[in-house]
Write a protein that binds this DNA or RNA. Structure first.
Lengths: 265, 265
DNA sequence: GCGTACATATCCCCAAAGGGATAGTTTTTG
DNA sequence: CAAAAACTATCCCTTTGGGGATATGTACGC
């Protein structure tokens, strides 16, 4: 069954946390426990679009299909639904996660939506997935797939993979934690407090509003639309802000703010 | 023997990497494999003074003795010598590491130098130590100690601990890597640490260099002059960085980094 | 009433960043 | 050794930001 080999390899996986070859190494180590053909890791952060964190699809899924999936068809994915439900950390068969009629529906059969299932070379024998929580609202999904013509995973294999699951989910979370935007951190209370304690008195209320929007990543045009004023007005405000703070670029503004954040800590 | 319990607990240890309760949890998990009374983790970075990273000494070592050790008597320590030699990662008995006359020398017998050995309550039955490399010149040492009146570690216990050693050393390195100033980093400031822990694995070394310069406020031209490459090359790197991080502007890069800073706190 | 500060808005010009495409050289890695 | 990845470089074109100058409306206080 290969559990001994699995235990032998886990220390190596731990040492590869945070390194670029972690994904391939995880594939390799798990292949000692049970055979599979394709893998991938997606993050489903909050209500945002998924991120492809690891691509073990061997080029079977075209870039166009992947782009489709990331742009919207993921909403129809049973794995996505499970991550939103959410389910506890562990190993799941796709058949368990999917509604009864899933495999009869348009999604599964469409050749243009799923990055893994619908490939030119045929259909999948089975997909199983490790699900790991990164935060209350973010889940990682590590899929193992068997291609057409092969058997489904036996219960013996599943049992061995289930034994490995606690380690797999812990590894997934540790390695990819820093690759996924933190839970609402960018508009969290911490950031709010940092904004309001940033140069109070020097800037007018309106200017503070504009600074906080700039720091959140908005362009002048985007700010103008948000506040329902002209783009030129926003640019003018930014000009005044720069003059007051004694800086001459957005970059310096970010630097001031980073210094402010660190100084507070 | 407890190897089954050990394997059960390692996933929890992995999930605690980077969290404050990792040290105690490691002590607890290893105590299932073999009994011991006291523990501690030191880092020996380059040629600098050691750092006490984990204190499982239960107050047996006085602050004064610890200060002495950190200030200079560590130079006489056999564990320090082993880390400077250096020895390969693994588990060692202190008796193996020490020169033959070590236990007869002034160091071992002095009541004022060793943070663990010389305590009021008596002497040690034995000390064993896991040594893990953090970098070519930095080693971590995780000591397990049995107090007076107990037996030394049996060969059976040592064998069990040696089986666990690859995982233990990998865990040590991962958890405490960010606690020890990077190799040759002059100041190892907060900001430096934040830069180096920003999306590891996603970006190449060169790309990380460019990101850190951009975040410091440099323009493409300024970076080009600093690195003595063409401005277009810098712009190209930035293009690739944006693609990898899934963003499309400097502003978003700053946002990611601010989120990273806040997320770490 | 008048000055001041603030928010709004427009024009022009230049510097910088973003992005597609392509390609030669070096380094890493299997 | 051969393939892959990374680093280097250039061309061209669009979008965004930065800054000078200027102007109108509005709210507040003296």
């Amino acid at each position: 069954m290969g559990m001994a080999q699995w235990h032998d390899r886990t220390p190596i996986l731990v040492s590869l946390i945070g390194r670029p070859d972690f994904g391939p190494a995880l594939d390799l180590a798990l292949s000692q426990v049970a055979a599979f053909d394709l893998t991938c890791v997606f993050a489903y952060p909050g209500e945002e679009r998924p991120l492809l964190l690891h691509d073990g699809l061997r080029g079977v899924s075209s870039p166009a299909i992947m782009a489709n999936y990331l742009n919207g068809t993921y909403l129809l994915d049973a794995v996505y639904a499970a991550c939103r439900r959410p389910v506890p950390d562990g190993l799941y068969r796709l058949r368990e996660l999917a509604p009864d009629d899933f495999f009869e529906g348009d999604y599964f059969k469409s050749p243009a939506v799923h990055p893994c299932i619908s490939m030119e070379t045929g259909t999948l024998a089975e997909e199983i997935v490790f699900i790991a929580a990164l935060s209350p609202s973010t889940r990682l999904a590590y899929s193992l797939m068997r291609q057409n013509g092969r058997e489904t995973f036996t219960e013996t294999e599943m049992e061995a993979l289930r034994t490995a699951a606690p380690m797999v989910t812990a590894l997934l979370a540790q390695h990819w934690r820093s690759h996924v935007p933190a839970d609402g951190a960018v508009d969290g209370a911490l950031l709010e407090r940092a904004f309001s304690s940033f140069r109070p008195g020097t800037l007018t209320a309106r200017e503070q509003t504009i600074v906080s929007l700039v720091l959140r990543g908005h362009s002048s045009l985007s700010i103008a639309r948000l506040l329902d004023i002209a783009e030129g007005t926003v640019k003018n405000h930014r000009k005044h802000i720069h003059a007051k703070l004694g800086i001459s670029s957005q970059t310096e503004l970010f630097n001031l703010f980073i210094g402010h954040l660190i100084g507070e800590a």
